[in-house]
Nucleic acid binder design. Sequence first.
DNA 1: AGCACA
Length: 249
Amino acid sequence: MTTTSISQPHNTLYVSNIDWKVKKPMLKRALHMLMTRHGKVLEVVALRKDGLRGQAFVIFDDVTSATEAMQQENGTLLFGKPLKVQYALEKSDRISKRDGTYVPKAKREKKTNNNSNNNNSNSQSETNVGRENPSTHSEMTATAEGTATTENLVPPPPPPNATTTTTNNNNDQPPSHILFATDLPPECNEMMLAMLFRQYTGFVEVRIPRAGLAFIEFDDEPHATLALQRLNGFQLTTNDALKLTYGKA
DNA sequence: AGCACA
């Protein structure tokens, strides 16, 4: 009789334990960037109201993607803190409207214990994966160690001919003033990327919410586009080339 | 810890 009411699968994930210092637009972009690798993200909702700080709702197009994202991203680091990812309790308005079951907020009932038996297919209740153990080397102050690649960053690379044929992940975002970098080598920090991107007009800032991922902000889309065309595919190390895509504005 | 969307 395990009456532990674990929330049942939803399109929407409830993400908590987020660093409350992170500003809301940045947080939404970072979450979108993380989650879109597991499937199509319809929307990221974050509130700054009291009691809702450090939390967000990530709405997926389908439940399968949400489930995968939950299993993969629960416990992973974002802005230095391990994320807590679980299903949301309630269906998002975004989804209800798609289903045609949307009820305005005023008419909402409180939770009725009327759980009609939803026999979930609990055939394989996998215990947590636990494979991803974020080791304690997450200190970002690793500049003391030989970052010999810094020297390589200074000369601007020649523009590659192959512009758009580069790896578009599943990132179908339209052009925006935000660029995303994925699969960065772990030793790549914000300073290195800033050094690389500040050569281009309109550069604002670079943030690395998690090792390997960064977003680079420009003042407008054309400037971001130029930097993307010039720097996409740039050889960061002998093994790693810079992978750039557009981020959600 | 904590479950919103106007």
